[in-house]
Design a protein around this nucleic acid. Structure first.
Lengths: 339, 339
DNA sequence: TTGAAAGCGCTAACAC
DNA sequence: GTGTTAGCGCTTTCAA
């Protein structure tokens, strides 16, 4: 509490020079003589001078700060994305200010407004579920119109023209389904608790396409779209009522519950029922049998997002880009059939 | 890019009044007549005026922003803490700006400096491993001296006087060990990959105390402190060389590997070997048998931290507090012995 | 080589 | 009830 931050003004007074001389000296301006620079720098150092960011930012109109709005942080995928963003922003000398929308539209709007009122140079956003349901993207458009670039990742919308970083959910689900078919599965089901999300819809489409193309009409697919609360019961019913031998679970909760229920019903995984899910690495690796997953590469998504947005902020981009990050299927125990 | 943010100045010009009148009207000052207020507000609304935060902050000397420096975000515990912090800051109308030290001292110093140069009103910190090893806490002291309150959570140090939020690691480990003893375990081992952290040391102490008090000298405890790389091998050796029937694993990696190795060696959990670990809820719940854990209550820690720091920022606190958050043992399959 | 002064966008004490 | 003005801490043009 004692040695309050020192300002340029105070430095100037103490040294008996003008404010601007101090400022220039500290910014290594060619206008100032080496002697003066040394003197000023030494004094500044001694008093542990650090420029006030707020003032610098206000003056320059730049903040070197990126706002990040995520629907949730208790979700392995978004955590991983955040990690990726942080790696790049850190390296390129930017800060991130993080907000959680908690899947709520109102929160998202508030966050967007706060962050775009001078605190940040641009936003990285994964759209909240509620926003995707009511399709109200005005706050983002406004933000962009005001000169604050927005980049959307994973959960994006066609309604807004901006940079985007996504994975090819349709194709990933197709490939995952194909993997199940190649294993010899005939009776496939998809389980989802994210039917309202764009990514959820795309995964369903990819799944359906794969089933109809690869298995044909005599093996119609089953799609269970449900909520977290009904999940367990519905899966129990699903497994009771149909002789399912392969499941694509398109989110972490669905994956875990399918896995658990299958075991508790005495089905052997993968011989009775093969499972491909979406889940964090540790979880996938340590449940038994371990779970084959579609690896969404959150870190890469985050990195790409930060890179693209910073490039735009620094004027290295003109046209909007949509970057598709490659995913891969990590094969684990839940699809290693023993013939 | 078209409708650049409008400023008070512009509003004033357009309305033919002075800047201060606009400012006062928008801040609902008693000095301004209702008529004028209405007129100004309406106009501001129409042009979607939002005050520039940077300017407001610079002027007021407050930012309503809290800096959060965490060692890692890919760690369930800290993610949970962050979630708790966010809940409170959000409710109390504060923002958080998040930085990851990645357990590096240099990163931590840089982050501390950046965040304390006007961008934030105060800091919430969990000390990086490297910092705890070399015990160099000068950057925090400096920050505090400059009038930026710091709150430490989980990983704290006696060297700095400030608010702290912790769990009673000594006691928790003691109770966890007691639980193992009550189960009838005689040959106990502790496994850790966090020997350098204060919390790691305390857990070891609690464990040792419990063993010597509850089992006595004829059952000496085993302590395996190792690194992530050697973890698996060392645990295999441990289980091969000693007839261990109870393990306390004091971090997530240790917990998972002990669990896995025990199973792969054919030991029945919990009958041959009972395990208590530290791990995220989902992980603990879905591995099988499910894992009894010491629940560190990250959300509560985060909430308490944010609450205490904000109270201090708002002058509602004088003396430094050290808040101890209660933990509990969540009993799951890995300690449900069948007699 | 140095300094005076304006201004980033806003607030507030003090005049009028 | 409204306006003038100074100033938060800094950068930068322009003048000396």
């Amino acid at each position: 509490m004692n040695k309050k931050k020192i300002t340029v003004k105070e430095l100037a007074q103490q040294l008996g020079v003008s404010i601007s001389t101090v400022s220039k000296a500290l910014n290594d301006s060619y206008e100032i003589s080496e002697v003066t620079k040394q003197r000023i720098r030494k004094h500044a150092e001694k008093h542990n001078y650090k420029p006030n960011r707020l003032a610098v930012n206000l003056k320059s109109g730049k903040t070197r700060t990126i706002g990040v709005i995520l629907p949730s942080i208790l979700n392995n995928f978004f955590t991983t994305v955040l990690y990726g963003i942080e790696q790049v922003t850190n390296k390129r000398d930017y800060n991130i200010i993080t907000c959680i929308s908690n899947e709520s539209h109102d929160n998202e709007v508030t966050n967007t407004e706060i962050l775009s009122n001078g605190s940040t140079d641009g936003l990285i956003v994964a759209i909240a579920e509620e926003t995707q349901i009511n399709r109200n993207y005005g706050h983002f458009q406004e933000c962009i119109d005001e000169g604050n670039p927005v980049l959307m990742l994973d959960r994006v919308t066609k309604s807004i023209s901006c940079d985007k970083v996504i994975v090819d959910d349709f194709n990933d689900a197709f490939l995952a389904t194909e993997h199940l078919v190649n294993l010899g599965c005939k009776k496939l089901a998809l389980v989802s608790t994210i039917e309202f999300l764009g990514v959820g819809k795309k995964r369903v489409k990819g799944f359906k396409k794969a089933v109809s193309e690869l298995l044909g009409d005599e093996h119609p697919e089953l799609v269970l779209e449900t909520s977290l609360k009904k999940l367990q019961l519905q899966i129990e019913n699903l497994l009771d009522d149909h002789k399912i031998d392969g499941v694509l679970a398109v989110d972490e909760d669905a994956s875990l519950v399918v896995h658990k229920v299958s075991k508790s019903k005495g089905f052997k995984i993968p011989n009775d029922i093969a499972i491909i899910g979406y889940a964090g690495k540790k979880l996938a690796k340590y449940i038994s049998p371990s779970l084959t997953t579609v690896n969404q590469n959150g870190v890469k998504i985050g990195r790409a997002a930060a890179r693209i947005l910073i490039d735009r902020l620094e004027g290295k981009k003109t046209d909007f880009v949509t970057k598709i990050i490659a995913t891969n299927i990590v094969k684990r125990g839940s699809t290693f059939k023993i013939d």
